[in-house]
Design a protein around this nucleic acid. Sequence first.
DNA 1: GTCAGCAATGTTATAATATAGCGAGAGTTC
DNA 2: GAACTCTCGCTATATTATAACATTGCTGAC
Lengths: 153, 153
Amino acid sequence: MHQASGHNHRRCIAAALHSADRLCAGSGTRMTALRRKVLAYVWRGHDAVKAYDILARLGGDAHLAKPPTVYRTLQFLRAQGLVHRLESLNAFVGCPQPGKPHEGQFLICSRCGLVREIHEPAIADAVAEGATAAGFRVERQMVEVQGLCAKCR
Amino acid sequence: MHQASGHNHRRCIAAALHSADRLCAGSGTRMTALRRKVLAYVWRGHDAVKAYDILARLGGDAHLAKPPTVYRTLQFLRAQGLVHRLESLNAFVGCPQPGKPHEGQFLICSRCGLVREIHEPAIADAVAEGATAAGFRVERQMVEVQGLCAKCR
DNA sequence: GTCAGCAATGTTATAATATAGCGAGAGTTC
DNA sequence: GAACTCTCGCTATATTATAACATTGCTGAC
């Protein structure tokens, strides 16, 4: 697990849970105990989490959860914009700015696992332009960058 | 399978196999019958191919190939730059311009499956700039766009 | 040619990721 | 409380991928 130092991470978790309450209240959905637990675990650090790690974590509570439980919950959280899926890792990461629809780009440190989400209109625009020039109508952009974070360089 | 109409697809396959011979000759590696077969199958159309579809295809020759055979062969072809992996599909696609190292971007039609590889420096540059601004050192860019191709719009 | 060395492929087993489909429980509405 | 719906549990299975070791077969030195 990566825990960016220099900040009180409990605040990150609390903020994520608070956003979740707010978003669910707004969308008429329920932020249940299970969803809260999964979201909190996704936010245990600033790196990506594997579905089966979440599963093991829930199982550790003597509940012995099954895969569908985890995948359904992740799907719900993704639908709310609370969690993103990193396609290049088959893993999940909490969204630091949920609620605002966005085309995020992900910077993934190959050494420490840190995942940083950025929102550069210049990137989204360049992708949109390139696709349009090729006759494509864009539905979804996936931009993931592997590299070294500032600390690991 | 997607077969872009309006072109003689056998030429695409022949070109890919020819590039493969050239690259292998240049790198001191061997373009074996198995690798040729897999590459030709990847190029059966302009859409992405699943590893287990290749497997089934090889198995159909009464050889009953096993997964490692296919994954090893794909890994070789990727190392030569002949094939790319699409992370968002867990699938593989032939590179239309192998040999030249490049940061490709992929446009994936969600209706017909067509995969088009483009090379827009503007995209790669924007990504590099965004990452650098965030303190990241880029090792690899993954840009995949889901959308509708010109024909399917 | 033949043999040593190494690249390529085969084989067995298993790990890791993900979904289908159906049923039970729990909160909500009327 | 009856009907409804959202949530969660559960069984089973599909899909994707790799580890580890055995065998085959090409290639180059001699």
